[in-house]
């Protein structure tokens, strides 16, 4: 694991969970049920649901092991899709602009910035209408593990042209791989992920998540041209996918881009090579997640 990968692996987000007040027993002040967590960017929100419910379950009207109601998070009335890594959800839903972050949020060393999320419960039908994959709270760990394995199968297929590398993992390998995420063990994670990721990938597994003008999550087809790999940059991809947002590699020529490329909370230089971008910034499910941050008038 190189320096960049190590720093990204350690990236975290401060999260404050507030329980929907309608779910609390009468007389329980909502302030009593606040849960503050520092969560790794490279992890899943639902992994902390058992901890949240352990701390707040006694204040809730509902039985949290109920099969009828599904836990879900929302941010400013927008559903938070638990099947994506925490980092990309935070970057996209808050419209994070790293250049503005320090000036806006860290005015003093004594201040801490946190992402405030509300935890609620909904029926399976409501989940579906809001685009949330339903899962039972007492089986949240298994649900996300199963989803994560499917993500790796897809990533493996895109990278290699087939899923044989991950399909040849034993159950023990899969368990060790998953434990490396739960235990935050970068060495174990890299050992196993390197068995899947080839030196000369066929294609790159990339997800672009944008919230404006509407929520849109896309999987662009990114073919690596091994005969001319120096040609493909972040700008090449962005220009192809969003020709109206990205006009130039830099803003020196008089026409201006209206969006920035953000990954793991960092603004990515448009001239960066796509393969280098993928290898350093990929997430723990084999995909590279990108969010778009739009320039404001003050920019």
């Amino acid at each position: 694991m190189n320096v960049i990968q190590n720093l990204l692996w350690q990236g975290s987000v401060n999260v404050q969970i507030i329980i929907d007040s309608e779910l609390l027993l009468p007389g329980v002040p909502w302030q009593e049920t606040i849960v503050n967590l520092r969560l790794p960017r490279n992890s899943y929100l639902i992994l902390c649901i058992p901890l949240i419910l352990k701390q707040t379950g006694k204040f809730l009207k509902l039985q949290f092991d109920s099969n009828t109601y599904i836990p879900w998070f929302e941010f400013e009335n927008v559903p938070v899709y638990w099947n994506y890594p925490i980092g990309i959800l935070f970057d996209t839903l808050t419209g994070l602009d790293p250049a503005q972050r320090d000036a806006k949020y860290f005015k003093s060393e004594d201040m801490i910035y946190y992402w405030k999320l509300q935890l609620g419960f909904c029926s399976i039908t409501d989940c579906n209408q809001n685009g949330i994959i339903p899962f039972q709270s007492h089986e949240s760990n298994q649900a996300i593990k199963k989803y994560w394995i499917h993500q790796w199968k897809q990533a493996c297929f895109i990278l290699n042209g087939n899923s044989k590398k991950i399909m040849s993992f034993s159950n023990n390998d899969i368990e060790l791989f998953w434990q490396s995420i739960l235990e935050r063990d970068p060495v174990k994670f890299m050992d196993l992920s390197n068995k899947i990721i080839p030196k000369r990938p066929h294609r790159l597994p990339i997800v672009i998540y944008q919230i404006l003008p509407t929520i849109c999550i896309s999987n662009p087809v990114v073919i690596i041209d091994n005969t001319n790999r120096n040609f493909q940059t972040v700008f090449d991809l962005m220009k192809r996918e969003f020709p109206n947002y990205f006009l130039n590699v830099n803003n020196d020529s008089g026409t201006y881009n209206i969006a920035k490329v953000i990954s793991n909370g960092i603004e990515i230089p448009l001239e960066m090579k796509l393969l280098e971008f993928y290898l350093n910034f990929k997430s723990m499910d084999g995909f590279l997640y990108i969010s778009l941050s739009f320039f404001t008038q003050s920019n």
Binding site: G131, P134, Y147, H150, F157, P213, T214, I215, I217
Partner: peptide, 24 residues
Amino acid sequence: GLDLFQLDNDMTSSSSVWYNIHPC
């Protein structure tokens, strides 16, 4: 697998939840 799918490539259509048979 159980996943979200946007059935129409229309920016305004939302994703919905579907089971899918893994195609590898």
